[in-house]
Amino acid sequence: MMLERTTFPPGMYLTQYQWAKKMMAVNADAQGTEMWCNHYHQRTAIYFTEAEVHPATAAEIAMVFAPAREKRKEYNQRYSQRRIAREKEIEEQAKLFGEARATEKILSLIAGKLPTALSSSKSRSVTEKMLQNKAIIFDTETTGLSDTDELLQISIIDYNGTVLMDTLVRPYFHSSWVEAQRINGISPEDVEKAPYLHEILPELCAIFAKAKVCIGYNVKFDLAYINRAGVSTDHLNIIDVMLEFSSYYAEKNQQTKPRRHKLTACADHFGFKWSGDAHNALHDAQATLFCYQSIRNGKE
């Protein structure tokens, strides 16, 4: 049975990349030990002990870090290309629909109001058949709350709870996220061997392209991260369960002014049984689905 690296004391077993950060290089004859990177059991890596490394030369360090630098350069180039393509798309929309209509849409995107508008208008026309066949429930975990932070986990399930995607994501530019780690429990070591966003982007785009409804909790926040990566969501009916529950709770409790509630409070209200910790994207997506179905079915 393969061991988990996290069962050993920190620093006892490190990958070649981790040793390189300490200015150490793996010996030519070192065998290493293959282990699961974490309890997710998604990826394995070869780990080495202190006895299998030596002080590294500058050339050895450069050789280890070169692939990561190339991936980061490639991502920056792709991001720039997507941004240019998006600017051209907006110009074409302006020609097709008229300057006034295009300007209104652009302003709404800049103001971040599009998901909220869709939640309040389109969600009313969503049918049960559409939910069963074309709905996805989406959640993420990130390195923080700003638009300069990065994704750490993406989870998507369908309306029946089937997992369509559940993966950790390796950030390009962040090496630590202390405050976020206290909440989501995802450490830099957990994502060290996870795929970069560009590696899962084709699968992510395909899932969203097939969907007609996207359900989430404060979903505007999650969508912003994948929109910046180039995932198109303009065609979707967006349902924000946070807003749905806010109205639902205010009506039930005769509140004149609805207020927003955390997902854990919403889940507790409807008696959701967590399969694991909150602030795990998959568990949060499952809780969001349960809450939305409870609201839709009129559960007290």
Rank of each mutant, 00 (worst) to 15 (best):
E99P: 08
R260T: 11
Q254N: 11
A265F: 08
N27E: 07
L131V: 04
S80R: 10
N133E: 09
D277Q: 12
A287S: 11
A25V: 01
A25H: 07
F48K: 14
L3H: 14
I110P: 00
L145C: 12
F245A: 12
V163L: 10
Y47I: 03
L289S: 05
K273T: 01
G161M: 04
A25S: 14
H269D: 12
A66M: 10
F65R: 15
A209K: 01
G98A: 00
L107N: 10
D268H: 10
S247D: 06
S108N: 13
V241M: 05
K22Y: 06
P55K: 06
G144T: 00
H283V: 03
L201R: 06
Q255E: 11
A229K: 15
Y40H: 15
G216A: 14
H174L: 06
I226Y: 12
E52D: 15
G32C: 02
R78T: 02
Q31P: 05
Y159D: 04
P195M: 12
F65W: 15
Y159A: 11
N133P: 08
E244L: 10
S175V: 09
E87S: 05
E251T: 09
V219M: 06
E4A: 07
L236T: 02
A45F: 08
L223S: 09
W19H: 14
P55L: 00
R86N: 10
T162V: 10
I239Y: 05
A85P: 00
H279Y: 10
D240G: 12
W36P: 09
A62T: 11
A250C: 12
L289K: 08
M35P: 03
G298Y: 00
M1D: 13
S246E: 01
C37E: 10
P171I: 02
F272H: 12
S125W: 15
Y248H: 10
M24C: 13
I238Y: 05
S294K: 09
M23C: 02
A281W: 03
A85M: 08
K113V: 15
Q286G: 08
A278L: 09
P115W: 02
D29P: 09
K273F: 02
L107K: 13
Y159V: 01
S155N: 06
P258K: 01
Q132H: 07
Q16N: 12
Q42K: 09
D29N: 06
G161A: 05
P67Q: 00
K95I: 01
L289W: 01
K257S: 08
Q16G: 12
T256E: 12
A59L: 11
C266H: 00
E99Y: 14
A20I: 00
K262T: 15
A59Y: 05
L263K: 04
N280Q: 13
I186E: 04
G276Y: 11
S121N: 03
E203D: 09
G32P: 01
A267G: 01
F65M: 15
N227Y: 04
K299S: 13
E104N: 14
P67N: 02
W36L: 11
A51T: 02
R296M: 00
E150L: 00
C291I: 02
H235M: 07
S125I: 05
F245S: 07
K113W: 09
L3M: 12
R43H: 02
L164P: 03
